[in-house]
């Protein structure tokens, strides 16, 4: 089996100043008085694991345990303080739907803008345009500025764009709960399709049901460290019993 994601002795620190210094004036005053102090805050430590191509991998943990941070490190949005992350293939991060929409623009304009945010060419987007509109069922609103959309409508378009290609790695951070129940079903079907095409899927969710249902393997994060990793059923059972 080919490896899809390799995480090796990963460590992530946030360098938080005691009070948040955000102005030059404060900064210089503190520097002159030698009061510049930074508090090192370790969010993730000693994280090593591997995910095989085609695996569906769940991550569970309490609020603030570092799940979103780990996903951001894997998708390259942040760089780790120590250690490294190796990924093979294209990544589609579904960390927040509709990031990169400009609410003043119409949906049509936003579809192209968001496509280019994900690194797709105009020609490619032309080819996929109808498919995206079809999937999101928003044809009647295409030329309305998105500020007049409901949040569910924004999420529909975001989801349709983000999943229009079959990536090698799909990263999903708690977004399966958007939209009405019909659209949720549609989203899960789409994600299932993607899973069946040898794509690696990494899912963070607070719904243990969902993780048990979808995932083969699972990682349990606690205070930024690995508490348990392995077979999804076993990890979920242990997690539920704490």
């Amino acid at each position: 089996m080919a490896l899809s994601v390799e995480v090796k002795s990963l460590e992530m620190h946030f360098n938080m100043s005691k009070e948040r210094l955000t102005t030059l004036k404060e900064y210089f005053l503190k520097m002159v008085r030698k009061e510049l102090r930074f508090e090192d805050f370790v969010v993730l430590h000693d994280i090593s694991f591997k995910i095989e191509q085609g695996d569906v991998f769940g991550i569970v943990g309490l609020n603030g345990s570092g799940k979103s941070t780990l996903l951001k490190l894997i998708s390259g949005i942040m760089r780790p303080t120590k250690g490294n992350v190796k990924t093979h293939g294209t990544i589609a991060p579904l960390i927040e739907l509709g990031a990169g929409f400009d609410m003043e623009l119409t949906a049509r304009e936003n579809i192209y803008l968001n496509g280019s945010v994900l690194g797709f060419s105009k020609k490619f987007m032309d080819e996929r345009f109808d498919e995206i509109v079809e999937f999101s069922e928003m044809r009647d609103f295409l030329d309305t500025p998105m500020k007049n959309y409901s949040s569910g409508m924004v999420a529909r378009i975001g989801f349709a764009i983000a999943t229009m290609t079959t990536p090698d790695i799909l990263i999903v951070d708690e977004i399966l709960s958007v939209g009405d129940f019909k659209f949720q079903e549609k989203c899960e079907r789409r994600i299932n399709d993607i899973m069946n095409s040898n794509t690696t899927v990494i899912i963070v969710s607070h719904s243990i049901d969902q993780i048990e249902r979808l995932c083969q393997h699972c990682l349990w994060l606690e205070h930024g460290g690995i508490r348990m990793i392995g077979d999804s059923q076993a990890v979920c059972d242990a997690y539920k019993n704490t």
Partner: peptide, 9 residues
Amino acid sequence: APLIKKVYI
């Protein structure tokens, strides 16, 4: 910021 936090650009 909203973009930078969610996708790599």
